[in-house]
């Protein structure tokens, strides 16, 4: 979904965000960033650059030491508990450590995201089936997640993040355990979410292969600071 920065209001706005973990570990320093509605943004950088911290801040899992984060014009850290809960239903997150329930099946893990929004059983069945097909997991539908490979678990985490057709999808190292073929499946999922559902997608990754030839914006973090802010020009790309 192409975006026009001149008319669009940012969906996410970070203003001078600093995050210091005790005693004095600076994870992010004075980061300002706008993410527009319908945009796909790659957040890149080496391990320890602050990508995961930024994702956590966007999802209210951490609070910034200084600065302001607004999502859809609302100060994230002034939201009431109910406000946070409602916001989380609209944001899909694929965590680096997956956060899946090992004893529950693939279907149950993905369905859980829709159950908390009180979606009907039929809606859940259809949507989960669709995602399993998209991510080539249909044959694993009734398998406990604990019995899957890391790569399969990663796709389950992504499917759960995408289940509610989120307004904002945050994916932390989504292809870390995937081969080239399955990486393409994941990229395809992002593209569909972006184009068909208008989801804004933030991908934190150090896997250069998935953003090297992208037409979307790539933002690089280096030692907790915004190192580069590249507006990619549209071009022939392999993945996007």
């Amino acid at each position: 979904m192409p975006r026009d920065a001149s008319t669009d209001k940012p969906l996410v706005e970070l203003v001078n965000i600093t995050k210091i973990y005790p005693p004095d570990i600076v994870a992010l320093e004075d980061v300002s960033l706008r993410i527009y509605k319908g945009e796909i943004l790659f957040l890149t950088g080496m391990s320890g650059a602050g990508k995961t911290t930024l994702i956590k801040l966007l999802f209210c899992l951490e609070t910034p030491t200084r600065g302001l984060i607004e999502i859809a014009g609302r100060d994230l850290f002034r939201l009431s508990p109910v406000g946070i809960q409602q916001m989380r239903q609209k944001i899909g997150v694929a965590y680096q450590d997956f956060r899946l329930l090992d004893k529950q099946t693939v279907f149950q893990n993905i369905a859980m995201a829709m159950e908390v929004t009180y979606a009907s059983a039929k809606e859940i069945r259809v949507r989960v089936g669709e995602l399993l097909d998209l991510l080539n997991l249909a044959s694993k539908r009734n398998k406990p997640v604990g019995e899957l490979s890391r790569g399969e678990q990663q796709r389950v985490a992504l499917a759960r993040a995408a289940a509610n057709r989120p307004t904002l999808l945050l994916a932390d190292e989504p292809t870390g355990n995937l081969d080239q073929t399955t990486t393409e499946l994941v990229i395809n999922l992002f593209r569909r979410l972006n184009e068909e559902d208008g989801s804004t997608i933030v991908v934190a990754t150090h896997d250069e292969s998935i953003y090297a030839k992208t037409e979307h914006r790539v933002v690089e973090l280096h030692n907790g600071q915004l190192a580069a802010h590249l507006e990619q020009t549209p071009r022939q790309v392999e993945l996007f």
Partner: peptide, 16 residues
């Protein structure tokens, strides 16, 4: 515990 934590992250309401 683990499931409740995930439910919270998924935006489950207090009532849920």
């Amino acid at each position: 515990q683990g499931e409740l934590e995930i439910l919270r992250l998924l935006g489950a309401s207090s009532a849920y």
